[in-house]
């Protein structure tokens, strides 16, 4: 494994009570450029490291959204502006937006799964001439968990069809209620000419991918981001094995055509 490179926390934005977005810039030599969908191993020095996907890439700056759920993520989530974290990467496969050129795009996110998909949205908005209609479908548990709430209106203004739903509305919520797959019927896409990008809990991914195929998308055109325990990031340790795949190297983004049969095996 390579030595983690020191990166300085430039900004920290609170997205939700337990979620923060960190913008990092290299304190020394920058790492090679990341592609959307790839992940880094982020180190909270003295605590440990976890894999975190990039949610924006701006030159040498990296942006990561982190939910505090354990010791390492809590330490990273609590990083202060000016503090230092360690970064290894880039690791894994990207979303492959280039392969979707000319097609309608479906970006489908559940919960914090919107974070790895955000760079797909930003790239598509930056070059609208390269693809067809852009749909962003977002599901969250409660309104307060919705990520990038300040950005989604801007995405709409720039031409994206953004549909948002929550499982549990509060008294102030006047939007949609239901699971994210229920939004598919309202998205604007031609199934035979669409590429879908899906990220979220694995049950949500399976349900969404099956629904997409039922609606006429080719399984090769449904790209999903999978998850197993990432550790080394370079396919050596085997912790992230899913059948023939080592997801840190062969994933996390794979096609539903590759993933479908693997996810039917409970022991994998």
């Amino acid at each position: 494994m390579t030595t983690p490179a020191p990166y300085r926390v430039v900004t920290r934005t609170v997205e939700a009570p337990d979620v923060a977005t960190l913008v990092l810039e290299p304190a020394g030599d920058p790492l090679p450029p990341f592609s959307p969908g790839q992940f880094a191993m982020l180190y909270a020095f003295g605590v440990g490291d976890i894999p975190v996907s990039v949610c924006a890439v701006d030159g040498h700056r990296l942006t990561h959204t982190i939910r505090a759920v354990g010791a390492v993520s809590s330490a990273l989530h609590g990083s202060r502006t000016g503090g230092t974290v360690g970064v290894r990467g880039p690791f894994g496969t990207g979303w492959g937006l280039d392969h979707a050129a000319g097609r309608d795009l479906l970006v489908i996110a559940g919960g914090i799964g919107l974070a790895p998909l955000r760079p797909v949205v930003l790239a598509a908005l930056a070059a609208p001439e390269r693809h067809g209609r852009l749909n962003v479908l977002v599901g969250a548990r409660v309104p307060g968990d919705l990520l990038y709430a300040s950005e989604t209106d801007a995405w709409r203004e720039r031409g994206a069809r953004v549909l948002v739903t929550v499982d549990r509305p509060d008294a102030r919520w006047n939007g949609d209620v239901g699971v994210v797959t229920t939004l598919l019927g309202r998205a604007a896409f031609t199934p035979s000419d669409t590429t879908a990008f899906v990220c979220g809990p694995e049950v949500m991914i399976r349900a969404t991918a099956r629904d997409l195929v039922d609606r006429g998308l080719d399984a090769d055109r449904v790209r999903v981001s999978l998850e197993r325990t990432m550790h080394c990031g370079v396919g050596h340790c085997g912790h992230c094995q899913l059948g023939p795949l080592l997801l840190c190297r062969d994933g996390p983004v794979v096609t539903w055509a590759e993933a479908r049969s693997l996810l039917r095996v409970r022991e994998l």
Binding site: P51, T65, R67, P116
Partner: peptide, 8 residues
């Protein structure tokens, strides 16, 4: 949760 998406 999803580790690569910012979990653990």
């Amino acid at each position: 949760g999803r580790a690569s998406a910012g979990g653990e």
